[in-house]
Design a protein around this nucleic acid. Structure first.
Ligand code: FES
Ligand code: FES
Lengths: 136, 136
DNA sequence: ACTCCCGTAACTAGAGAAGTTACGCGATTC
DNA sequence: GAATCGCGTAACTTCTCTAGTTACGGGAGT
């Protein structure tokens, strides 16, 4: 597991859930399946809950469930839920007032923002249901 | 300085060089200007030298110089010289043979590759000379 | 010869992410 | 209503990656 395993974990879990949208899954089971820790699962899936993709239930027979049908959840939804912008401004924003650095920052930031939009747009073209189907 | 300060340092330095393409600059001076260490400068600029963007000269009055006119060096050239792919496959490629994970990896990889191409294409539209001019 | 600057290796230090432990809370079950 | 089970969250520990640093060798000028 290297960087950004959060996205990997989230997509993997949701793909599984797309198989049986109404079933309830426990953090421990998901963690065991993904080879990680229940707390890590709760952390990642907690972000998806805040974004309204999942609901969690406490109590004796609690667990995780999809908040809406799998065909209404796109990869972009998941990506945005975990707020990791891939195309973050790669230039440090400590503008020294210097015009060269400022021009550089402006230019690169603009490109990055456009790329970020492209990424989101492309991710939004695929739902987790399609992932499930293409896997079969 | 956070992640990817290498790209920042490289672009900054090249933008400066675009002002006086024939002047010779020492690692120590560049480092002092950028608030870092001469060795770091040599490391980063070494990549640009391997990519044919810069030439370095040893000896008593050595230093760094542009290898070609600034209007022939694009931001994409610099980005590619430091081989940091922003849109690296974010999913761990340890394919467990599992069909769901495989389908997921394929899909995300394809999107990432497309985004990477978009990024390079957009970066190639700007030369370091244009950065210099827009700064002025 | 001497000096200056690049090239490179090896080590240190710091930031960031994941993994781990621990405990409180609510809901279910009996 | 007491016990159990699973989530929520905080605090700590690794682990990894990057930048920063020190050190030394070699070539090109003077
Ligand atoms: S610090 Fe302003 S351009 Fe270098
Ligand atoms: S391991 Fe979960 S889909 Fe294969």
């Amino acid at each position: 597991m290297k960087r950004n395993s959060r996205l990997s974990l989230a997509l993997h879990t949701l793909s599984h859930m797309a198989h049986a949208p109404d079933s309830l899954r426990k953090s421990a089971d998901i963690a065991a399946h993904a080879g990680t820790n229940p707390v890590v699962v709760r952390r990642v899936l907690g972000n998806l809950r805040q974004a309204g993709l999942l609901v969690s239930e406490a109590g004796h027979s609690g667990g995780w469930r999809l908040a809406r049908p799998p065909q209404e959840i796109t990869l972009a939804d998941v990506y945005l839920a975990l707020d990791e912008r891939l195309a973050a401004p790669q230039i440090d924003d400590t503008a020294h007032g210097c015009s060269v650095e400022h021009a550089l920052y402006d230019r690169v930031s603009k490109v990055m923002a456009e790329v970020e939009q492209t990424l989101i747009q492309k991710l939004s073209e695929t739902t987790i249901l399609e992932i499930r189907d293409s896997a079969d």
